[in-house]
């Protein structure tokens, strides 16, 4: 037989065998696998519902909660709305209630439908509600407890901090939402406590949370109180717009600016020294504590929960600190 031809045949056979083998392996490798059907493990289902999905503050809350949920072995989901869409937020809440989750951690919303849902629907299905970060009055909602910053204390601390630079007779403008949500009222309460009998004039202004409303409110404020010494934004989300509007017209350093950290840009504004100080809270801790207490309560380990709530710590963060 022709030796050359034999060698060529042999080489070709080996070559294609290798290719075929590799292709077989690749086919096996690529063969799709369906996710396995899982059993209903009867684990607890807990939902965290917020009005501010995908914001740094709430992401941190969710992260803390998720970690704790994983540790506790309970099913956990974050739902809610984006950018204070109350209707979507309440729908999410109603959906969670109809879905009969075992417990709800929720950003409190001072709103009649919220109260109705919490008081009637959730109670009907026997679903415990724990407010987190932002509280609502317990008598309207029958919430089990609140976990987050003691807003009165935080407001008071911020006020005290402001007093370090403020003098008698100084004017302080406090900006709050026109809906006057419970947590803002709490903060204001703290502030007022701090400024009590300090000879500080506190001007409280409400505003709508739409961008244009905010711009208008700020401009009006600057017109009416051009000589005010400090701005305190009870709602941290206003800070950026207010800072922009002020800087359009006068020097930022004319004012002391204070706010809280549960707004989108608060931290960045502090870093760039556009605001003087803010209250930093512990969102991870809130999420973690929320899940832990809820699970404990559901398992009957901790009963009853403190109605006043469990406060997480906070601190005042200054420029350069």
């Amino acid at each position: 037989m022709n030796k050359q031809l034999l060698i060529i045949f042999g080489l070709l056979i080996v070559f294609f065998s290798v290719l075929v083998g590799r292709a077989v392996y690749q086919v096996m490798d690529a063969t799709p696998q369906l996710p396995k059907i899982a059993k209903d493990t009867n684990t607890l289902h807990i939902a965290l519902i917020t009005q501010e999905l995908d914001t740094p503050f709430w992401d941190r809350v969710a992260q803390g909660a998720k970690q704790e949920a994983k540790k506790q072995g309970v099913a956990f989901e974050v739902t809610g709305a984006y950018a204070f869409d109350d209707s979507a937020f309440l729908d999410a809440m109603e959906l969670a209630i109809h879905s009969k989750v075992d417990g709800i951690l929720i950003q409190g919303l001072d709103n009649p439908r919220f109260k109705e849902l919490a008081q009637v629907k959730a109670a009907y299905y026997g679903i415990p509600i724990i407010t987190i970060a932002n509280d609502v009055p317990v008598k309207d909602t029958l919430r089990k407890t609140y976990i987050g910053t003691d807003q009165v204390a935080a407001g008071q601390a911020l006020g005290k901090h402001a007093l370090q630079t403020l003098k008698k007779g100084d004017e302080v403008v406090v900006l709050m939402d026109e809906a006057k949500p419970y947590f803002e009222r709490q903060r204001l309460k703290g502030l007022k406590r701090a400024f009590h009998r300090q000879g500080i004039e506190v001007i409280v202004r409400t505003t709508g949370h739409e961008q244009q409303q905010l711009v208008d409110s700020t401009q009006q404020l600057l017109n009416e109180h051009p000589t005010s010494d400090a701005f305190i934004m009870l709602n941290a989300n206003y800070t950026n717009t207010v800072v922009q509007e002020i800087s359009k017209r006068m020097r930022l350093s004319n004012f002391q600016l204070y706010t809280f950290d549960d707004g989108v840009d608060a931290e960045a504004l502090l870093q760039s020294k556009k605001i003087n100080a803010l209250v930093t809270q512990q969102p991870e801790k809130m999420g973690q504590q929320g899940v832990k207490r809820l699970v404990d309560w559901l398992n009957g380990n901790e009963m009853p929960l403190k109605v006043a709530g469990y406060f997480t710590s906070f601190e005042i963060e200054e420029v350069g600190s």
Binding site: I37, A38, D40, A75, E77, L95
Partner: peptide
């Protein structure tokens, strides 16, 4: 039900 959608299916 699978591992990814357990929560959702229950809901």
């Amino acid at each position: 039900r699978n591992d990814d959608n357990g929560f959702r299916i229950t809901s």
